[in-house]
């Protein structure tokens, strides 16, 4: 009586389309999954990026106040979004790794950090390029700019701490704690910087009071944001594959990989 029931349960769960997600929590299985999906994410990033840039350069109208120079927002805004989003994702995976001791989660956190720092840097850089023609200066101590700069410091601190610790387990756990402390502090830093900025009233320029955007501009930005998202996933997966190989280099399955072409 027992055997058929169990088999029935198995078929039912298969029919409901349930996948055993924990299967991919093992670095070995995730390695091949990441290898197969990385080209898909890069291809999506390229296609969406091409569409987004086409909209940005040829479809979106010239801004009445800012002229052609505003078109840098199609890079600037998506990178700024990704820089903040990636920090939260990184802290999430780091916390999961700390709480459940899952090796792959910590590797994901480690793999996300450089991409996040890169996005933060790009957001700052394009912001400076935008600021020069618009405000006549490369940099203003605006609340958003300043907190984005601090976010870059937080990324660099996380990467430096992980790089300074040789033992992977301690590096993972120490980095995780720092990421969690950082993610708790990000709102505090943001609001204190904002208050500091409004109290000083030094910078008269505000990027929050921007005119309402044309629909095509918004679409271009959203498509570009998706493109950057796909790129970030692809880059992270590529990096996590390298980290898996490095950490599991003594495992049998990695040694078997050397024989096979993949």
């Amino acid at each position: 009586m027992r055997m058929p029931r169990r088999r029935m349960q198995a078929t039912r769960s298969r029919m409901a389309g349930r996948i055993n997600w924990f299967y991919y929590a093992a670095p070995q299985t995730f390695y091949s999954l990441a290898g197969k999906s990385t080209p898909v994410f890069y291809a999506l990033a390229a296609i969406l990026g091409a569409i987004g840039l086409y909209i940005g350069f040829f479809v979106a109208p010239t801004d009445a106040q800012q002229g052609e120079g505003y078109r840098i927002i199609f890079i600037h805004v998506p990178t700024a979004w990704m820089s903040m989003f990636l920090y939260v994702v990184m802290a999430f995976w780091a916390a999961i790794g700390l709480a459940f001791n899952t090796r792959l989660s910590s590797m994901m956190a480690q793999a996300i950090a450089p991409t996040g720092a890169w996005m933060t840097f790009l957001a700052l850089w394009t912001g400076a390029l935008w600021g020069k023609p618009m405000w006549g200066t490369w940099w203003v101590w605006d609340a958003r700019l300043t907190s984005e700069l601090i976010l870059l410091f937080l990324y660099l601190g996380f990467m430096a701490l992980q790089a300074a610790i040789d033992e992977p387990r301690r590096a993972d756990r120490a980095g995780a704690l720092l990421a969690i402390v950082g993610v708790v502090n990000v709102p505090i830093i943001y609001f204190s910087v904002q208050w500091w900025n409004t109290l000083h009233q030094g910078a008269s320029v505000s990027i929050t009071r921007s005119p309402t955007m044309a629909t095509t501009m918004l679409w271009g930005m959203l498509v570009m944001a998706l493109a950057f998202w796909m790129y970030c996933i692809g880059a992270t997966l590529t990096r996590v594959r390298a980290i898996i190989l490095e950490r599991e280099r003594h495992a049998d399955w990695v040694r078997d990989l050397k024989g096979s072409p993949q």
């Binding site: 410091f153 660099l156 430096a160 701490l161 402390v181 950082g182 502090n185 830093i189 204190s192």
Partner: peptide
């Protein structure tokens, strides 16, 4: 590098 950004507030 770790502590100074957190000191800002």
């Amino acid at each position: 590098l770790l502590v100074l950004p957190l000191y800002i507030p």
